[in-house]
Amino acid sequence: MNPNDLELIHRYLDGQITETELQVFEHSLKDSNELRQEFVQATLLDESLRHALGKVVNEGPKNESVSLAESQVGFSKGAIRWRSVVVVLATSILLLMGLFLLSNRNQLSASEEFSRMLKSLSKGDRLYRIDVEQVVLPSKKQMDKYDRTRPPKPTLEGAKLYVRGLDQFVLMRFVDDALRFVTGSDGQIGWAIAPSGPVRISSDTQRFNRDLPGHEHSIPLGNLSQGLERIQKAYAVQIVAAASNEQFEEQEAMLIATKKSGERGPKRIEIQYGKQSGRIAQFRFVEMPYGPERLTVRLILLDELSLPDNFFSHAYHHPSDQDVIDEDTEQK
């Protein structure tokens, strides 16, 4: 490649290119596929730098919200900012670049896709990592409506979610890289382990899932069949072709569910899944109510595992001599 052409790429990116140089540059771009590739890569890097070193959220109030939220819960601002860049790019380009929505979407029935996902979920155990892409704090008016007697929810950033079947889960949340809160259900008993105090258990398996993404509007990840059913009812669903998943060696599709007017819940839910296997590789909840905040979170499938049989039981996660309070008995 001509070194002058490379220099023109950079002159263009920095707004330095002259009219004459632009004509030469266009001519070279037209003739050279290699130069265009180089230009695309350089533009991508340039735009990523702009996002990474600029501001995540351009609007004033939202930006302030992110900062406030981060300072409150001790997020790494840089980490969230950078994750947001990659995620925004990935989402955009999945939509733009995959050449997307399958040409005859009517043939793809969303319910068939959901069935395949559910079938896949019934096999084995899965580990998802939760990334918080954006935090928007409520307005003062909204905050006033919120029950302040409830303790603030610990951050979901970097949390790990283990899922077995359709109704068993373990959610591990970390504060300053140390495991602090573990909640879960083995399908029969719901339980919660806080950093201090006794373990709490209940025969209501939904009792402790208030910290699961999506639970507030009946899209709990601790009960995926219920969650997917709710999405079908309350959301307009589109199926999009995504890309190949190198980790799981499979072509994937993306299901984009946009909340219908008058319904409650996250504004949009995206589920990336294997076209053949139905394996859910990613969930993304856009503007999901979470306590008084609205979060945009992504759950990424890290691994498919074979965990010990009792992993989803509370006893697996605390010393045998730790006090256990059965809330069913306590209420009586």
Partner: peptide, 24 residues
Amino acid sequence: IIDLLSEDFSKISTSELHRLEHLQ
């Protein structure tokens, strides 16, 4: 040129995007 570039942008793979995770 923009039409040509649109096509080229459409060929970016997810693995290329993952590379950018190292940028920070």
